[in-house]
């Protein structure tokens, strides 16, 4: 079964064709990073306009690369939540139009579930049950996953998402947008133990996350008490910036890995999935690989290109909705 997937929840315009939930026939991503760089973050109105321009050629390219036409596609899937509402609407409306025009069923996909499913692409057997961590600019959530469509939330951020903390700390350090890759790069030359930021464990049994206090701790460290933020930032040497970036990153990775492994232990899970844009962070990958091996757990880390937003994970997951006969009406609404 061939499914066309569309994903436009944030700043990447994506379309893909996937066969039977795991054979990726095409996977096209038009990134808007350059467009948003000068603003230091995704600008919603610019994002939806850029989606509008990119969507038709991106879908055409995905069909082309898969050597298929719309009449060879059995269903159309799109992410309808969560995300930037204006951006979601572009992809969802396109999917509805294609579904209606070609008389194909529509499937509405949850972006977070799709990030978990990214680890299942290219795999023979489904890895469920498992513990799944989705960590990105908008989410930091832990799930106990019983199947591709069944995820029980067992922990989540109570303030900022991890990726948001990366972006804001990068800004404090004067590092370029996007913050995730910038910190990853700067941290390479830094000492992860130069500054021992307090790990936000939130009490012994908690599986929730909090990164707002850490962000504030970095702010204090960078600017000192009462000093002028800008002046101090310029006074930081490259070495110091690298040390703070590495120490901050280490703190985030410690907490993410620590809680995910504990959740796996508590739930008796034998596998862990880590998905979302922050799962592309090299230090995070290294630590999860090491700690999962030590705990005797199988770790499913999607390849880098399936960590960041893509439509292959959407078309892949949609197959399981199609198998279950869970289709969406054409008046399906987008939700932030």
């Amino acid at each position: 079964m061939l499914i066309l997937g569309i994903e436009t929840s944030c700043d990447e315009t994506c379309a893909a064709v996937v066969e039977d939930g795991r054979r990726v026939l095409s996977d096209v991503v038009a990134t808007q990073t350059e467009v948003h760089r000068k603003y230091g973050g995704v600008v919603p109105e610019i994002a939806s306009r850029a989606h509008l321009e990119a969507l038709v050629p991106v879908v055409a390219e995905a069909l082309d690369q898969a050597r298929v036409r719309m009449d060879g596609v059995q269903a159309v899937a799109a992410v309808h939540r969560p995300g930037l509402i204006g951006s979601l609407l572009v992809g969802l409306t396109a999917a509805k139009t294609l579904a209606w025009l070609h008389d194909r069923p529509l499937i509405g996909i949850n972006h977070v579930e799709a990030h978990i499913y990214a680890a299942c692409l290219l795999r023979e057997a489904l890895p469920f049950p498992c513990v799944s961590l989705v960590v990105s600019g908008g989410h930091t959530s832990l799930y106990h996953s019983a199947g591709p469509r069944r995820h029980e939330l067992i922990g989540a951020t109570t303030d900022d998402a991890a990726g948001e903390a990366f972006d804001k700390v990068a800004m404090l350090l004067g590092l370029p947008y996007p913050g995730g890759p910038s910190i990853d790069l700067a941290a390479e030359r830094g000492n992860p133990h130069a500054v021992e930021f307090t790990r936000p464990w939130l009490g012994a049994g908690s599986l929730d996350f909090s990164f707002s206090g850490l962000k504030t701790a970095v702010l204090y460290h960078v600017r000192g008490q009462g000093a002028d933020a800008r002046r101090r930032r310029q006074a930081l040497t490259d070495r110091q910036i690298a040390d703070v970036a590495a120490s901050f990153q280490e703190c985030v990775v410690d907490v993410l890995a620590g809680k995910t492994l504990r959740a796996a232990e508590e739930r008796g899970a034998e596998r862990i999935i880590v998905g979302g844009g922050v799962a592309a962070n090299r230090r995070l990958r290294e630590r999860f690989l090491r700690e999962a091996a030590r705990a005797g757990l199988e770790l499913l880390l999607p390849p880098m290109r399936f960590c960041t937003d893509n439509a292959a994970m959407v078309a892949g997951l949609a197959y399981h909705y199609a198998q279950a006969g869970e289709f969406a009406p054409l008046d399906l609404e987008a939700r932030a």
């Binding site: 919603p44 995300g83 900022d160 948001e164 707002s212 932030a336």
Partner: peptide
């Protein structure tokens, strides 16, 4: 109630 920075409005 978590940060609305990413989705802009909750």
């Amino acid at each position: 109630v978590t940060s609305p920075t990413f989705v802009l409005c909750r």
